[in-house]
Design a protein around this nucleic acid. Structure first.
Lengths: 157, 157
DNA sequence: TATTGTTATACTCTATAACTATA
DNA sequence: TATAGTTATAGAGTATAACAATA
């Protein structure tokens, strides 16, 4: 189901020297950094009770979605190297949010799974993420959310 | 100058349970984090010769655009707090890329300016940023770049 | 040889708190 | 009182290098 909507499109023409590097405001990377910072800050400020970072929540979430996941698999999904993954896992294990096991199929690999405490923490964390997303999405139209995610995915994939 | 354009807007109706939090793939914050990481990684890997981080380049750029800028003004533009700004400035000053001075109008404030060496480094850095942006923009259509910047700005402003 | 996990190391980013000087 | 800069401190993220165990 679709309907026609009229929007105003500013027709900024391409100017001579447009491809040159001009103002810092036109640098995509600059805005990605700032947006990331804003998101990071809102999350940590609003949900300091959680005592979990976005990254840690992401790890709990992925482990919950993929029981027995190995560290390398997790690392790939998070776009982290092994050492960084280790550091994150260690912190979560120290708080008894997840446990390491031995993979039956491959002796080199380990299995990661949430503890009951980890599952409980994830429920709270998802609640927080949900609120956080509402804050984020309040700045975007419904359709823009999908567009934005699609464009960002093209960048990190 | 503007013109009217008609677009099709899919009127996806809100469904029961729509506000529920589903897959991690639908979380905007998740993609912003990953995209930021991808951009960060590409920049540091490709321009390790520079010995400058994106943040440091941004600071040099802003100081160049705004001679005699004070640390607090810079901090606002970078969305950093004072302490983080100090740390960044200190690193750049230690490398003789910028100098601190005293503000004539306000004894509390300082002035920041690039040294000749800092200016030279900025030229190289802008070259790198330009290439980096090409890599980034190769994943996006011309129009999408503007859309993305606009949406990201709405998030961090 | 390649992969997985591990440890050690280092730099950057981020922020909080407390202090000094100035407005 | 408020603002600007400073210092000390700390946790987290990021990565590299080298090592052991396993495939």
């Amino acid at each position: 189901m679709t309907r026609i909507k009229e929007i105003l499109v500013p027709t900024t023409p391409r100017v001579e020297g447009d491809e040159e590097i001009g103002e810092i405001r036109n640098i995509v990377g600059f805005h990605i950094r700032l947006a990331h910072g804003a998101v990071y800050r809102h999350f940590t400020e609003t949900f300091s009770d959680l005592e979990l970072t976005q990254k840690q929540v992401s790890v709990l979430w992925l482990v919950d979605d993929h029981p027995d996941i190995a560290q390398t698999d997790l690392a790939q999904r998070m776009r982290m190297d092994r050492a960084t993954t280790m550091a994150t896992i260690n912190r979560l294990q120290a708080r008894d949010y997840l446990v390491r096991g031995k993979s039956a199929s491959d002796g080199r690999k380990q299995t990661l799974n949430l503890t009951d405490e980890g599952s409980k923490a994830l429920v709270d964390a998802k609640e927080a993420i949900s609120e956080h997303e509402k804050w984020l999405k309040s700045r975007l139209a419904e359709k823009e959310v999908r567009t934005l995610i699609e464009m960002l995915a093209r960048i990190h994939e």
